[in-house]
Structures are given as structure tokens and as C-alpha cells.
């Protein structure tokens, strides 16, 4: 299998699906000249010149235009340059895109995909580094995908492009350049299927996005100490595969939830609550959360390092749980 970075994997998914389905089109800021800041849409303008629109700067108009185009049968894939800028379009996301099918009485679908570069990366501070999964999870009607590997990113994007629901596709900027093996044959990864990235007997670690890699690193270190982590990547937060998570917790009797969102009200809160509700009798210890500090992301590398959840914090939480 070829090893490619995640931005290329998403690009391949877009190219392959655009070749398969003529209703897909791409819009967003700078999506032609640079292929967006992370080069995900590079080459689409050359291959599908009529199916890409480089837009003026307005996230609200990008999402609103995408909703309108979806209403007349197209499948828009809109890039929001940074997830932080989705705030400028939240009415169109929350009141329109998420609710139009329901409010229409199911007469129409709104299959819009919003690609959302997320998370900390390269010291870009409070308005370029956020992780807003929990906001989107909270809105009925939206699906939320959070790939952690190139393989998952490509397979999930293909599923998104074949589904009928609006999708908030969370792309962690720090993962764009991380390479991973991607099958060179056709495949899709269905939404709502968690992936067990590592099997272990002692602690279930539900990790998403960039925390999957950190959890696997923590697992290697802890394995030498005789603590075996089971690392589960939900891959989609909506829909959420709780069966895989609950089965794991019933086996390990301990759980850590980790992601890069600020901890208060984060997706980890929903996951921890579900585990507490459904697996209470199996738990030997309280569910732990390892997430970002509840602060706007600072710029200084020294400060950013403190705010972002680390391997060390995972190690500490795990050691504490089995102590």
C-alpha cells in the first residue's frame, strides 16, 4: 500500500468521487490558487474547471450558497479556511444546513460537506487553533467526522460524499502532513464505525483526531510497564459507535476519553457521560478526561504546550487509574 499524507488522501477522495459523481462541486476561499492553505483542493481546478468556485471572503455566503446548491440537487464541498471562521457562518450551519430537511418535512436532503481545518498547529494562536466538535455534535441534523489517519480520512470523505446528510468534516491541521498507508483499491469507511487502533486489557482510551497518535505512543510506553491500553478511535462523533466503546469498557473496566477540544463541555463530556450511564456496573474507577486546558489557545510555544493535551498527561492519567 502506498504511504501518503492526509491532505493527499482527502484530495484523492475528492478527485475520485468528483469523477464518479458529476453533482459534486467545490467552493471556498483560495481553493484554486493554493488549493486552500493546506493544498487539499490542489489540482481540482485543472481536472474539473467548471466544478470549482473560488469565492469572495464570506463564510456565511459560502455555507448559504452551498445550502442553496444542495437544495437543487448538487453536492457542494465547501472549505472553511479554519474551523475558527465557521463562527461567521453559524446561522447558516445551525439554523439552515442542519435543519432544512427536518423543517421541509423530509421533502429534500441537504448533502453539504464542510471541510474544517482544526486544532493547534504551527503556533497560530486563539483564532486559528480551535477544536469545535462539541458545538457541532450539539446540533441535531449534523454529522461530525474526525479522521485521524490518511486511510480513515479518505474512506470517511468518500462515505460523506455518498451520504445524504450535512457533514462537518474535521481535518486536524497537524495531521495533514503525517503519512500513513492508504489502500490503492476502492474502499469506503462507513460513518458510525469506531476503529480499535490497538488492543489492550487494562484501560480503554477513546481518542479522536491528533490524540489517537498520542494515545498509541502512550500505549507503547505503558506496555513496558505492564499496562496495556486499548485505543479506540470513534472516527465519527455523530453518529457514534458506542457498542465498540462499551464492549471495550466492559472488558477493561477503566476509561480515558481524550481529544484536543477544551475540556469543559467538550465531546469527551458526552462520551464520559454515556459510559457512566451504560457501563457503571463495569467501572472500577471514575472515567477520566484528557483534553485541552479551558483557555483560548495561546501563541507562545511554551504556553501552547501547556494548553494542548500531551502524551505525558495521558501517561499520568493512565498510571493513576491503575494505581
Amino acid at each position: 500500500m502506498p504511504s501518503i499524507p492526509m491532505n493527499q488522501a482527502i484530495r484523492e477522495a475528492l478527485h475520485e468521487e468528483m469523477a464518479r459523481d458529476s453533482s459534486i462541486f467545490v467552493l471556498g476561499e483560495d481553493v484554486i490558487a493554493h488549493g486552500g492553505p493546506y493544498a487539499v483542493t490542489r489540482g481540482i481546478a485543472e481536472q474539473f474547471p467548471d466544478r470549482i468556485r473560488q469565492t469572495p471572503i464570506s463564510e456565511a455566503a459560502i455555507v448559504g450558497t452551498a445550502v442553496g446548491a444542495a437544495l437543487c440537487g448538487l453536492r457542494p464541498v465547501a472549505e472553511i479556511m479554519y474551523v475558527d471562521f465557521i463562527t461567521c457562518a453559524m446561522d447558516e450551519v445551525v439554523n439552515q444546513m442542519a435543519k432544512v430537511r427536518y423543517m421541509f418535512g423530509g421533502q429534500t436532503d441537504v448533502p453539504v460537506i464542510l471541510r474544517l481545518p482544526s486544532g493547534s498547529a504551527r503556533l497560530i494562536a486563539a483564532q486559528h487553533s480551535q477544536s469545535l466538535e462539541a458545538w457541532f455534535m450539539h446540533v441535531p441534523g449534523l454529522q461530525v467526522a474526525v479522521p485521524s489517519t490518511p486511510r480513515d480520512a479518505k474512506g470517511l470523505m468518500k462515505s460523506a460524499l455518498r451520504g445524504r446528510d450535512p457533514v462537518m468534516f474535521i481535518e486536524y491541521k497537524r495531521l495533514y502532513s503525517v503519512k500513513g498507508e492508504v489502500p490503492d483499491t476502492e474502499y469506503v469507511i462507513p460513518f458510525g464505525q469506531a476503529d480499535v487502533k490497538r488492543q489492550g486489557e487494562d484501560i480503554t482510551v477513546v481518542a479522536s483526531g491528533p490524540m489517537v497518535g498520542k494515545a498509541l505512543e502512550a500505549a507503547r510506553i505503558l506496555s513496558a510497564e505492564g499496562i496495556e491500553l486499548e485505543v479506540i478511535d470513534p472516527r465519527t462523533l455523530v453518529p457514534l459507535d458506542t457498542d465498540t466503546i462499551f464492549s471495550s469498557v466492559e472488558k477493561t473496566n477503566r476509561a480515558i476519553i481524550t481529544d484536543e477540544e477544551v475540556r469543559r463541555g467538550g465531546s469527551s463530556a458526552e462520551l464520559a457521560s454515556r459510559i457512566a450511564e451504560e457501563c457503571f456496573d463495569y467501572l472500577d474507577a471514575p472515567v477520566r478526561r484528557v483534553a485541552a486546558a479551558d483557555v483560548p489557545m495561546p501563541f507562545s510555544p511554551v504556553l501552547e504546550k501547556l494548553a494542548v493535551p500531551s502524551v505525558e498527561k495521558l501517561l499520568a492519567a493512565a498510571r493513576d487509574l491503575v494505581a
Binding site: T65, G68, D91, N95
Partner: peptide, 20 residues
């Protein structure tokens, strides 16, 4: 209900017609 939020949809519908 949010005032004016429907206006971008008309741009999308019209752009969609052109693309189609």
C-alpha cells in the same frame, strides 16, 4: 425565521442551476 438568512440560498440555487 432568522431575517435575511434565506438570501444566500437563492445564490446557491441559481449557481446550482448554472453548474447543472
Amino acid at each position: 425565521s432568522p431575517v435575511g438568512s434565506q438570501i444566500p440560498h437563492a445564490i446557491g440555487l441559481a449557481l446550482g442551476a448554472r453548474l447543472a
